[in-house]
Design a protein around this nucleic acid. Structure first.
Lengths: 338, 338
DNA sequence: CTGTTAGCGCCTTCAA
DNA sequence: TTGAAGGCGCTAACAG
């Protein structure tokens, strides 16, 4: 029951194992007859390449790994679906791993992946610590960051693909201003997240330049979930809520706000306007129809794969760069003129 | 920049590579001195085992793969989190893959995994076709099904761990009966899903035995999402809705029902009672508090890992069996006495 | 067109 | 306690 190898096939076919290898790889220089005979035997005996041996010999596998901070966030689930498609188009397989840059055992994960000689890694993270981590490993395996890093604070730039959070924040502020809002709140910015910080900063700066007042409510936890949004919103609603609009750090937070609003008998957008960020699929459902910023997940993933494979295949020393993709405002029904 | 190997270390240490191998594996028979020297050199030069080579030599890797029909379903996300923990406790790594039994390229995925000599596979599926697929591969790699198979229709039993759907359906029917409901609907059963079929069958049988009338609304799509639930519920609400309770095939469907209910200005549980199945975390949120059946995801995953590793490690021919874990009724606030 | 040989990095007897 | 040698399954360069 131990797996059949090319040697077995070679013996059965009465040829050498290199001939078998050649036919399996479609290398030229095998006569039609032997090729057919060999392929028949392979089928017949259920031969299956040992990818470990192949990768060992090649010095590299065809696996691209992506590291996600959580499977539970629908944003990532949607991104991975796209990622998978592009990676497969290019002839690679995707291996989904679960890990956060902040975890103490994150280096073990990297060691494991490098130990397996994965072709490359796409790291989903918006932690401040990710550039440091990446720089520690970038010499040993191609890595692309899906997320943003603090350009000012990072000496060596790392290859990254991300939404343009500054543009997003600005767009949101301008949109709310245009609708007549003058008192707004930014809900749920996470200190540890660079994306959140940029969004928040850009939003508040733009808003204030336009003469709006902005209240910022930080998210002290490490997660941006519906539940967290719910609790933050309750805080706002209990603590005299004078503002006419809320810009949530992301859609999940916004969904939590909607839940809390119902509890407080506040209707959206009649009592206040609400905006999110991410365009997770649930946000587009009827009865939700959240106005949000669409980060163009497909394009993000396409670029990330491109950027990674450029490094994998040509091992080019192309200057690592931060590629920004501007989001698009999606007007749905949670914002109205005031 | 090519990775440093045991040979490199051996040369630097002035020993043979087998000595290095021995110290790396903690094998006995290496003097303290050489051991320390070698370990120091490894650290110093950033040595990292080549797991491909090790696995090739061992004939087996330490990767356990799990195949999910979708990352987007929160049920799976929650399960994988637990799975990951148990797998790591046992010294293995988890590789998450995305694939449905119904997909045409599912065998490619299996070939890929077997090609990589993964230690085992946990297949998440409730498709009718999964036993057939498993039987095709079970001789080549340990597989455990997370889901149910049709015991009557399957000649050779496959190792499986699953919720007791029959018990669940019965419990739901009895619970609703106890609350005084006499006209109920079962919403969203998927033909292609064995779990759904069993739940539905058991629910309707029990209900009818108790003298209740049951209307069944099948889900014709392949997915059990909030959106699907929403559309099914609308169908019910438009088509004179006389029943006093709805049992949804799963929580996601139930959430869709809640969305639709709001649109129709129906309140839960005043206008009708609602039950789900799965206990996804979102269902426990305030303002949702869905009454549901908890499948005990942790226990399910613990058992699945146990069952798989039993086969991996002792390659025992233990009679493959279907392990059923009965769910628990979680009374929250979407059901009331009628 | 095909076989021989060497090597990928590691582990594991068998001798010394 | 250590080294030499062979093998895991496959690829590839070099002969024939």
């Amino acid at each position: 029951m131990s797996p059949v190898t090319i040697k077995d096939i070679a013996r059965l076919a009465g040829v050498s194992h290199s001939t078998v290898s050649r036919t399996l790889n479609g290398s030229p220089g095998v006569s039609e007859k032997t090729r057919d005979r060999i392929l028949a035997l392979c089928r017949q005996h259920g031969y299956q390449v040992n990818l470990l041996a192949r990768s060992l010999s090649a010095g590299r596998s065809d696996i691209i790994s992506c590291i996600l901070p959580g499977l539970d966030n629908p944003l990532f689930a949607e991104m991975v679906l796209n990622l998978e498609r592009y990676v497969q188009q290019r002839g690679y397989h995707i291996m989904v791993c679960h890990g956060r840059v902040e975890d103490s055992n994150i280096s073990q994960l990297f060691d494991f992946l490098i130990g397996h000689r994965v072709a490359g890694i796409i790291l989903f993270s918006s932690s401040r610590q990710s550039p440091e981590l990446i720089q520690r490993y970038i010499g040993r395996v191609p890595i692309v960051l899906q997320g943003v890093f603090d350009v000012a604070a990072t000496s060596i730039p790392v290859p990254a693909v991300t939404t343009d959070n500054l543009a997003g924040g600005r767009m949101a502020a301008e949109y709310l201003y245009k609708l007549g809002h003058r008192r707004v709140v930014y809900l749920g910015t996470r200190q540890s997240s660079v994306s959140h910080s940029l969004r928040c900063e850009s939003f508040t700066n733009t808003a204030r330049q336009l003469g709006m007042s902005v209240r910022v409510l930080p998210n002290e936890t490490l997660f941006s979930t519906i539940e967290v949004g719910y609790h933050l919103a309750k805080q706002i609603f209990l603590d005299d809520f004078q503002e006419t609009a809320i810009f949530a750090a992301c859609d999940s937070i916004a969904l939590g706000v909607m839940t809390a609003a119902k509890e407080f008998h506040l209707s959206i957008p009649q009592d206040f306007s609400l905006m999110g960020f991410d365009n997770i699929s649930y946000a587009s459902y009827p009865q939700i129809r959240l106005t949000t910023l669409d980060p163009h997940k497909k394009e993000l993933m396409e670029r990330a794969v491109e950027c990674l494979l450029e490094r994998v295949e040509s091992s080019s020393k192309r200057e690592p760069a931060l590629r920004l993709i501007p989001p698009t405002l999606l007007e749905r029904k949670t914002c109205s003129r005031v």
